[in-house]
């Protein structure tokens, strides 16, 4: 059972990483226009400099 002493902190750390990643997506405004982002990827316009 001693293994859980390692496993619990590790799993919490990994989950925490996910949480931080979510905070980052929130901060960088990735939820402002979900429909638009889904459609933009289908646009056949060539752009080597994606817009913000």
């Amino acid at each position: 059972m001693g293994i859980i002493l390692y496993l619990i902190p590790i799993s919490l750390f990994l989950g925490g990483l996910g949480l931080l990643a979510f905070f980052w997506t929130l901060k960088s405004k990735q939820y402002d226009d979900p429909d638009g982002d889904a459609h933009r990827i289908l646009s056949d316009e060539w752009d080597d400099k994606p817009r913000p």
Binding site: D32, H39, L42
Partner: peptide, 28 residues
């Protein structure tokens, strides 16, 4: 409502004089 709409609107607006950028938000 679609990807083509986004490009059409943005391209048309950005072609106009004095416009720096146009950005469509499809969700809103």
């Amino acid at each position: 409502h679609c990807a083509a709409c986004i490009t059409a609107v943005e391209r048309e607006l950005e072609r106009a004089a004095g416009v720096h950028s146009a950005r469509v938000n499809l969700t809103l």
